[in-house]
Structures are given as C-alpha cells and as structure tokens.
Computed example of a mutant assay.
Amino acid sequence: MKDKTIPRRSSKALTLVTAVLLLGGVAGCGAVESAGTAVAEAVRRAVPSVGSDKPAGNPADVSAAIARLAAIPVKGRAPKTGYNREQFGPAWADVDHNGCDTRNDILARDLTGETFKPGTHDCVVATGTLADKYTGKTIRFVRGADTSSAVQIDHIIPLSLAWQTGAQQISEEQRKQLANDPLNLMAADGPANSAKGDKDAATWLPPNKAFRCEYTARMTAVKAKYKLWVTRPEHDAIQGILAACA
C-alpha cells in the first residue's frame, strides 16, 4: 500500500524532451535502474505538447537526440522467433513498488482532472481528460468495459520491435523494466495506438506533427538506454525528423 501522506501526483511542469535529456550519457543496461528513477520522475511531471501542425523542438534537446542516434548501431531486424508478451514480464507490473500497477501510474501521469476508484488508495483511475499527443485531440477517459479502450497505454518502442532490435540479448529483468519504463510509455488515443501497432518510425509517425520531435527523441533515448539498435530505414526516418526539428 502507498503511504497516503505522500502526495500521489506532483505538478506536471517539465516537457518530455527535457525528461529525455536527463538520460545524459546513460546508454548501458547496467545503469537502467538508477537512470530510470530520475527519468521516470521527470516524465511523470511532464505536460502534453499538442495543438500545432509543425514539428517543434528545443535546439539543444534535438542536438542531443541527434548525437544519441549517431551512437546507436544500425543493423537489420532479427527474426521475431520466440517473441511473446511474457518475454517482458507480467503486463503492467508494479516495478516501482508504489502499490499501483504501471497502467494506472501512466494514466494518472498523463490525464488531467483524474478521479480514482474508491477504496484503491488513489491507484485505479476512474475518469480523466487526455490531451492526446498522437492526434492533438482532447479525449475524455471513463473506466469501463466499453469505454476504457478510448485511451490506451502505448509503448513508444513497441515490444515486438524491441525484441527484433536487441531485446533478445538483454536480461529478463531488463526487458521487464523496458516494458514498464515511463520513458517508453504514454497514454494515447486508442485508434491511433491500434494503427501504430508494432511499427517503427519508418512506417508510422504520429498524425500530430507537433509531437514528432519529442516522439523521435524519446525513441533514441529508449534505444540507447536498453542497448537496442535501429534498422537503416528506421535510422533514416528518425534522422530526417530530428533534422527538421533542428
């Protein structure tokens, strides 16, 4: 159980691109836990970036992402053989041991005006409003069998893609961290998330162009953090977006 004397949510004051920069030079899986704590907290406080049809990014942030991309190996996709969701641990595990599963942590981080199901110690999100980064739309979230799917939790680097670009070679615990890392997770419009599936940046980008700088910067951060590689088309697509952001 969470200590209810500790505020559940802090103010959402940082941009996600700034959160990405907190990774700094972290590129090794041995540093996942220590780096993840700082990044998760920064991402938890972040505000959505929606409402413009043009890519936008802080030049320093974009330069850092470009440098990170240059250090990520470029290889072909490995076979998908052996992939299943269980390779990344139980879905929405409570990896930060705050008493709440990861799905509800991300909903509470990304929604505004959220309410919680009574008796869950402010863990289970019941309602809230999402300023969706993928589409730029405002979506009302209401928990329920017929309504919850309007807002889904997306992996910025899909787990299937991660498996084919290096996650087979990291440990089971590191894959579990990857699947539940706030840096790699975002509440998103359900249909947009379904359309994305397990596509990489070469085959799918957010319809909301204003989010593409942040989206690709986070991709490079996750890839670097977990020692994943990029394919040539994926590399070129990310590089092109970041160049436009600069």
Rank of each mutant, 00 (worst) to 15 (best):
A56K: 10
L111R: 02
S10R: 15
G30M: 10
S34R: 14
V222Y: 00
P59I: 10
V32E: 01
A19C: 15
E214A: 04
A108K: 05
P73H: 12
Q239V: 00
A27I: 02
L23S: 07
L228P: 03
I157E: 10
V125M: 09
H155G: 10
Q239S: 10
M186H: 02
L130M: 15
P118R: 06
D146T: 14
H155Y: 11
V17K: 02
K54S: 15
T129G: 00
V20W: 02
R68H: 13
A221S: 05
V124E: 12
Q174A: 14
W229Q: 01
G166Q: 06
V151T: 01
P206M: 09
G25M: 08
D198L: 02
L159K: 14
A145W: 01
T15M: 04
A65N: 08
A65S: 14
C245H: 05
S160P: 01
E172D: 15
A60M: 12
T18P: 00
S160G: 14
V125H: 04
R143N: 10
N104M: 09
H235I: 01
I156N: 02
I72Q: 00
I66F: 03
I156Y: 00
T165L: 04
N208F: 01
V222S: 01
L178C: 03
H235M: 06
D181S: 09
Q169M: 03
T231S: 11
D146H: 11
I106E: 06
G57Q: 04
G82H: 09
A70R: 15
K227N: 13
A221K: 00
S194K: 03
L205H: 05
D189I: 05
T165W: 01
K133F: 01
G82D: 11
D122I: 02
S52T: 10
A224H: 12
A56Q: 08
D122M: 08
G51L: 01
L21R: 09
